[in-house]
Computed example of a mutant assay.
Amino acid sequence: MKRIWMAMIAALIAVPAFAAELGDDGLHKADWMRDTFKDLREDLGEANAEGKRLALMIEQRGCIYCDKMHREVYSREELADYIRENFFIVQLNLHGDTEVTDFDGEVLSEKAAARKWGLLFTPSILFLPEEVGDDQTAQSAAVAVMPGAFGVGTTTDMFTWVNEKRYALDSDEDFQRYHARRIQERQDGSTD
Score class of each variant (00 low, 15 high):
10 A>D: 09
116 K>L: 10
42 E>F: 02
111 K>R: 15
39 D>E: 07
132 V>R: 06
21 E>M: 07
18 F>K: 15
51 G>P: 10
25 D>N: 11
159 F>E: 02
85 E>V: 04
173 E>F: 00
129 P>V: 03
32 W>V: 14
5 W>G: 00
26 G>C: 02
169 L>E: 11
138 A>W: 13
88 F>I: 01
38 K>C: 07
65 Y>C: 11
182 R>A: 10
44 L>Y: 12
119 L>I: 14
71 R>V: 06
62 G>D: 13
21 E>D: 15
77 E>I: 06
1 M>V: 12
19 A>F: 13
152 V>T: 10
138 A>I: 09
91 Q>D: 11
74 Y>T: 13
110 E>S: 05
86 N>W: 08
32 W>A: 06
170 D>K: 10
47 A>F: 01
36 T>N: 12
113 A>V: 07
162 V>D: 01
104 D>R: 14
105 G>W: 00
130 E>V: 05
94 L>E: 04
100 V>R: 01
161 W>T: 09
3 R>T: 03
17 A>G: 11
28 H>E: 10
44 L>T: 03
81 D>Q: 13
78 E>P: 12
37 F>P: 05
106 E>D: 13
22 L>M: 12
47 A>C: 00
32 W>F: 15
57 M>Y: 15
118 G>N: 11
154 T>R: 15
179 H>A: 10
23 G>R: 10
108 L>W: 12
8 M>F: 06
65 Y>N: 07
174 D>W: 00
142 A>C: 11
101 T>S: 08
102 D>L: 09
92 L>T: 06
132 V>C: 04
5 W>E: 00
158 M>K: 07
39 D>M: 06
139 Q>D: 14
182 R>D: 03
60 Q>P: 03
87 F>K: 00
168 A>S: 12
138 A>V: 11
108 L>A: 15
59 E>S: 14
73 V>F: 08
123 P>T: 10
58 I>Y: 00
66 C>G: 08
25 D>Q: 01
19 A>E: 09
82 Y>I: 15
156 T>H: 13
135 D>K: 05
165 K>W: 12
114 A>F: 11
48 N>E: 11
89 I>F: 15
14 A>V: 04
20 A>T: 14
159 F>W: 09
30 A>H: 11
74 Y>G: 07
103 F>R: 14
35 D>P: 13
47 A>R: 00
61 R>L: 04
2 K>D: 03
181 R>Y: 09
79 L>S: 02
96 G>N: 09
179 H>R: 13
101 T>L: 04
86 N>E: 03
171 S>C: 08
52 K>V: 04
169 L>C: 01
72 E>Y: 14
191 T>K: 07
108 L>M: 15
